[in-house]
Write a protein that binds this DNA or RNA. Sequence first.
DNA 1: GTAAGGTCGATGCGAACGCATCGACCGCTC
DNA 2: GAGCGGTCGATGCGTTCGCATCGACCTTAC
Lengths: 170, 170
Amino acid sequence: MGEQGHGGARRAVQTWESLFRAQVTIMRRLQSDPVWDGVTLREYDVLFSLTKGPDEGMRLRDLNELILLSQPSLSRMVDRLASRGLVERRSAPDDARGTVVRLTPAGARVQRSVGRAHARAIATYVGGALDDDELATLQDLLERLRAAQASIPDVAPPAASDAGEDAPGA
Amino acid sequence: MGEQGHGGARRAVQTWESLFRAQVTIMRRLQSDPVWDGVTLREYDVLFSLTKGPDEGMRLRDLNELILLSQPSLSRMVDRLASRGLVERRSAPDDARGTVVRLTPAGARVQRSVGRAHARAIATYVGGALDDDELATLQDLLERLRAAQASIPDVAPPAASDAGEDAPGA
DNA sequence: GTAAGGTCGATGCGAACGCATCGACCGCTC
DNA sequence: GAGCGGTCGATGCGTTCGCATCGACCTTAC
């Protein structure tokens, strides 16, 4: 009753459930790691994301897309990180509204330190579960799953006018 | 320098990062779905988990393992759900300490309603990204990743004596 | 230029979170 | 069966979250 797109709906839901549960299970183990003394997992996520960006820093807006946190929450978290000396805020050179966040040397040091221990835990929990080929396959599929999101429109049309329910759009 | 277990550490870390990012990206889209009027995604997770258990209900302790939430937070969330009439708390028949939580008919109805819309969104975002074979492969790998956690010991030994860094253990 | 609409990030506020702790209860030992 | 360590779930408390909103600024149209 109603397969759509490529995959059947049922299989897609089951796969998402597996993805979600796997994430929960491993995340829970990672959180119990004593590494998080002094830095929350979400805070680490911010520090880590900053290392992936250019050295000049990142706009708050761009950083926010990488992190599962509302804009106000991220704003305040950056506040806290800045007051601890782990990041630096500056106003964007080309946009007076914008704020650029950058890791301080201390922040980079903390990120590396925590990241090392974090990586060790991941290697154990993820690397200990699947062999190298399987990891490569898994990573590839996840990467494509994520990349495909850019070309999939929202299920809920932003401005659904009462008429025209059947416009195929693009 | 230092491959361990099956997979290389590097690949494991990259795979986890992909898993995490994919989860963030899709979760963010799911959260923007208007379905969540009246029920939080975390609340839905509780309701959904209850449908997966026996009809008599589940112990709070067991429920807590399925959900990424601290024990006190789950306790209070169940309070709120109960005060809204979506779940029922009763004391466990064989353990006077324990509490059994069960869906009420109203709670089951809400779960089904939200679940339907939720499933539609997932079918779009996940089913629209990969074909059926790929989904099956992905699900299998994730399932095994999760299942393997039961037999992988914690990285941080509970009582790490200074000596004995190289005990291979099980 | 100036007005209108959109974007960026900060802030007030109530709700929800996690940590630490507690009382109640189970299971075990002696 | 009394005592003792461990488990279960509730509660006090400070912190952080998301929602709604705001001021500042950019952009486009006229």
